[in-house]
Amino acid sequence: MNPYSSSLNHPILKKSFEIIDQEMGDHNLNSLEYAIARRVIHATADFEFANLLRFSPDAIKNGMDGLGSQIPIVTDVTMVKQGITTLVNKTFNNPLISAIEQVSDALPGKTRTETGILKCFEQYPEAIYVIGNAPTALLALCQKIADLTIKPSLIIGVPVGFVSVVESKKILAKTNVSQIRVEGRKGGSPVASAIINALLILAYEK
């Protein structure tokens, strides 16, 4: 079944996907990777993401299995949480936690999002972590899990910007954890939300 044939999708969304399919051209993505890339392109109108997305082995499977098992989803910021709440509620009702909402003050030398991510990891070490805004949170998470046996089921690491963004993604790439990331400076909360929403639909229609 086409992962976007679900009743969850609006006709305008289907039409948008048809246009993307027509304009996409050649690519090296498999069908599941393309389903994710297509939703990211829809969210950004940027076809370059088809060449920037990176998927570790079993990342999509682990993400789908985790979502279907109703494991928690931890986002770095509220915007990502808001971007996925509707589909989470229509599919598996996973616990949905925004890291920045878990703390009122940052630890010394850390950002609030970084502090929140570390707090969430203590409570939900095997959650799916979705980082679309804060490279400091991605760095902190990667450093925390580097020598641990228990790791997140999946990390979606797609922060956007100019400071520590590329560095955080390079560290994620070297971390032994299932991951979906975007190379370079591009990314952002809409991209992070699009990736999780695509995984939710893939898992729901599995």
Score class of each variant (00 low, 15 high):
residue 145 I to A: 01
residue 81 K to T: 12
residue 67 L to R: 06
residue 138 L to E: 05
residue 38 R to I: 08
residue 124 Y to K: 00
residue 43 A to F: 12
residue 111 T to K: 04
residue 107 L to R: 10
residue 115 T to N: 06
residue 91 T to W: 05
residue 105 D to L: 08
residue 137 A to S: 13
residue 62 N to D: 07
residue 34 Y to F: 10
residue 132 G to I: 03
residue 47 F to E: 07
residue 89 N to C: 02
residue 43 A to S: 13
residue 34 Y to A: 13
residue 80 V to N: 02
residue 131 I to F: 06
residue 27 H to T: 07
residue 40 V to G: 10
residue 55 F to V: 07
residue 22 Q to G: 08
residue 133 N to P: 05
residue 89 N to Q: 00
residue 73 I to D: 09
residue 51 N to E: 09
residue 60 I to S: 12
residue 29 L to Q: 07
residue 126 E to F: 00
residue 129 Y to E: 06
residue 34 Y to L: 09
residue 36 I to E: 04
residue 52 L to A: 14
residue 113 T to W: 12
residue 99 A to S: 15
residue 122 E to T: 05
residue 103 V to R: 13
residue 121 F to H: 08
residue 41 I to Y: 10
residue 139 L to I: 13
residue 76 D to L: 07
residue 47 F to N: 15
residue 130 V to E: 02
residue 57 P to S: 03
residue 118 L to C: 06
residue 119 K to W: 05
residue 125 P to L: 00
residue 127 A to P: 03
residue 73 I to P: 11
residue 117 I to H: 04
residue 32 L to A: 13
residue 141 L to P: 04
residue 24 M to D: 06
residue 129 Y to C: 04
residue 127 A to H: 11
residue 48 E to Y: 14
residue 72 P to F: 05
residue 141 L to N: 11
residue 70 Q to H: 10
residue 87 L to M: 08
residue 32 L to T: 13
residue 100 I to W: 15
residue 36 I to Y: 06
residue 54 R to T: 06
residue 70 Q to P: 06
residue 129 Y to S: 03
residue 103 V to H: 07
residue 91 T to P: 05
residue 126 E to D: 15
residue 35 A to L: 03
residue 128 I to P: 13
residue 124 Y to R: 03
residue 45 A to T: 15
residue 107 L to D: 03
residue 62 N to I: 05
residue 102 Q to R: 10
residue 146 A to W: 11
residue 102 Q to D: 10
residue 111 T to A: 05
residue 140 A to N: 03
residue 23 E to V: 08
residue 52 L to P: 11
residue 69 S to R: 14
residue 64 M to E: 15
residue 58 D to W: 03
residue 22 Q to V: 01
residue 113 T to A: 13
residue 112 R to G: 01
residue 50 A to D: 00
residue 105 D to K: 14
residue 83 G to T: 02
residue 69 S to V: 10
residue 48 E to P: 08
residue 104 S to E: 15
residue 130 V to L: 10
residue 78 T to A: 13
residue 118 L to Y: 13
residue 44 T to S: 03
residue 26 D to H: 15
residue 38 R to C: 01
residue 41 I to W: 01
residue 61 K to S: 09
residue 100 I to N: 14
residue 39 R to T: 14
residue 137 A to N: 04
residue 122 E to R: 09
residue 117 I to W: 10
residue 68 G to A: 15
residue 91 T to Y: 10
residue 141 L to W: 09
residue 134 A to P: 00
residue 35 A to Y: 02
residue 70 Q to F: 08
residue 79 M to Y: 04
residue 98 S to C: 03
